[in-house]
Design a protein around this nucleic acid. Sequence first.
RNA 1: GCGAAAGUGGCGGAACUGGCAGACGCGCCGGACUUAGGAUCCGGUAGCCGAAAGGCUGUUGGGGGUUCGACUCCCCCCUUUCGCACCA
Length: 860
Amino acid sequence: MGIVPEYKPQAIEKKWQERWRAARAFEVTEDPARQKFYCLEMFAYPSGHAHVGHVRNYMIGDVVARLKRMRGFNVLHPFGWDAFGLPAENAAIKNGTHPETWTLENIAHMKGQLQRLGLSYAWEREIATCLPDYYKWNQWIFLKMLERDLAYRKRASVNWCPSCNTVLANEQVVDGACWRCGTPVVTRELEQWFFRITYYADELLSGMEQLGEWPDKVLTMQQNWVGRSEGARVRFTLETATTESSQRNAGADPDSDAIDAFTTRIDTIYGANFIVLAPEHPLVQRLAAESADPAGFRAKAQKLAAQDRTARMSGEVEKEGFDTGRRAINPFTKQPVPIWVANFVLGEYGTGAVMGVPGHDQRDFEFAKKYALPITVVVQPEGEKLSVETMTEAKPGAGRLVASGEFNGLAWEEANRKMTAAAEERGIGERTVQYRLKDWGVSRQRYWGTPIPVIHCPKDGMVPVPYDDLPVVLPKTAEFTGRGDSPLAHIAEFVNTTCPECGGPARRETDTMDTFVDSSWYFFRFCDPQNDALPFDPEKVGYWGPVDFYSGGVEHAILHLIYSRFFCRVFRDLGLTTLSEPFARLLTQGMVLKNGQVMSKSKGNVVDPDDMIRKYGVDALRLYVLFVAPPEKEIEWTDTGLEGSFRFLSRVWRLVDSLCETIGGEGIPSPDEVKLSDAERSLRRKTHDTIRRVTVDLDPRVHLNTAISAMMELVNELYAFCSRTECARSVTEAPEHIGAVDPPGTIAVLKEAVEALVRMLSPFAPHVTEELWERLGHKDGVTAAGWPAYDERVAKAEEIVVPVQVNGKLRARLTVAADTDEDRLRELALTDAQVRSYIEGREVKKVVVARGRLVSIVVG
RNA sequence: GCGAAAGUGGCGGAACUGGCAGACGCGCCGGACUUAGGAUCCGGUAGCCGAAAGGCUGUUGGGGGUUCGACUCCCCCCUUUCGCACCA
């Protein structure tokens, strides 16, 4: 047999990666004459080694970036490192490696891994968030937010391990205990920094209208996260209130005699038979003091508050509470109702107090049943007759009002409007909107993060670090014991400073920022990564922004993506960008499983891309990962699947390599210039149809798997075609047969097909296609060749097969010209011998003709 | 409990706006070439009949419905996955 050319990817891949690097092939600058495309994958946490699960996302983005380049866009495709964070500090505690050393070494290793994957990144724009020239701008933004009252300080609780004497992050709390020593975690109140994201709550909701190219799932999650609900705040007054004290504002003031309750169903207020306060409600302390047994009162409240915190993590908690013995006046019925304290009311939501309407709220119903509180029906559903005696659950829905005084008979929605208005008129409440979204706590009592640029002066209080003094550099010499508070607090040279206002001795803030701050704006920095005057040049972001295609895991559906939307608006309001939304299109990629489980080091089921590259080459790895399922779906790793992709590339290799002398030379006619045989026309049709399919599969949809399968079909067709022509010999037999007596038509259509194939395949398998493109005699790279065009008319079949159904069953197939009209199709179907045997002697009741698709005949 | 998405051969998955279900790949079976084949090429792969062309029957988690026609639309149920879990 002949010499079968063997596909050996390793040398080819090395060669092209070096060429790309030497040519700075993926570096870009702004070019107003060209349309830009910003393609971004979520940057990486440098954990040490990238496994196949991590790199799938980069492969998806790389196909999009390479495709867009071929289609003539000026493509920005950068990469960087989310380099601050707890694991680096944990590594320091464990083996004494400095977090910076650990991080930078990991980055170096992972960068090498990614480079071997042939990802077309503009590496000159690489960012690492742990470097001062990046985190300086975190500090700059922090100061800007401070100026605009978007950053502020308040007391908030943190997890605290009393044994290690340290603050714990949520993920360091395992089953309510410290992850290191197992001591039960307690909560502790600390002064902490917050970003006022709630300022943009409404905008974060309304802005979603611009996010038509985001998955609905993510939008829904964000919607729930912001959790807007419209309702009213209604004022209940303590029964013993004096006129004067009841006029003070309710809420934070414990001396007020008013209890504000938030409700979305003010229409049920005539059924509000009790008031429930959260254990943390400010009034609770006062009621305790005024009670007969203050100590016992406080103990009960304390118990509810504590139980609340731990139990809520695990699920269902039994409703529990106690009567304060005091009463408040229902402002609509003017009747006194008891005031309770209970665990099911959240202190941090709304006003921390609710009106208990057991007839129409399931939680209140359960509570009322347990403590034998009265239940009243005030909304009767249409066509039902609710009675308190027979009710087994609350009736929260629609209906007309009863037992509600002047509002009786109104439909509930109308009642809701009228009663809200009435409350406002009478000065006992007002329309209001509540959000579940809370302000973003950014303080971390940790070392490996951005120092918060603030100084505490005994004389001047909290003083921002002047802009000129930025960055506040993270000191290198810290001790990592895992005990005590932030390591920064123990570095005298860092902590002790002078006040920028008075020049006197002062202390630096020792908290660092949440790493989500870093990732909330890095996509802007990529547009201008070296800028040392501003976070970025507005003009550059004006050109590149927004990110046109952003891909990453769903686990970032809420936090990262909502914080980024928040930051984008902050930058907009600072005048640095005109954008409100940073990401035009979002793709959430599925995870890679092995043995049915997510790949992870701890499970010991990771697949190292380098191992696969050594065996099959990068191109086969990329192709496999992209072929096995759509990008959004999770995939199950199989070695045999990867072998299949390698086999496919080998087939392409043999095909092209053995044909390249025949079709690679000069002076080969275009298929338009020569007369084609039926077989040649048919191959040409397949070529154009494949280009059409792959083109629409890739853009705007990102159906990478079906695009690949279309190319596989073309390759199968090419093999079949070659086996029927002289060219065939070259594919499977000795080279001396190459081009023996092939007619010009054959060579022309083969050239067209092969070149289209190599070009279409190049975003997926960039190395092997570059090599083949070169062997086909092209000087410029395959990217420069551009995306192949197709001719709709050529792609269309000349003849089509139209199925004929009789009473819904397939009975015949008609082979007709593609442009056969409906009447003709009907006639052909009804006269077809096969069909006639089914309709003979029966009445034809109906004939439906779907042109080009099918004929359906109904007989009686 | 609430909400969303999904359920298709032995497996991963195709099927555009309702129009030949199972493209493509894996696996498996057979043939060719071979000293050999775990390489490569060709063919087969829901069941039954047929040497073949082709034919018959069944079929997209289960049950109903709309339609000439349903993987696709509607209703009920089952299962899985993912979000939210007292948000008043």
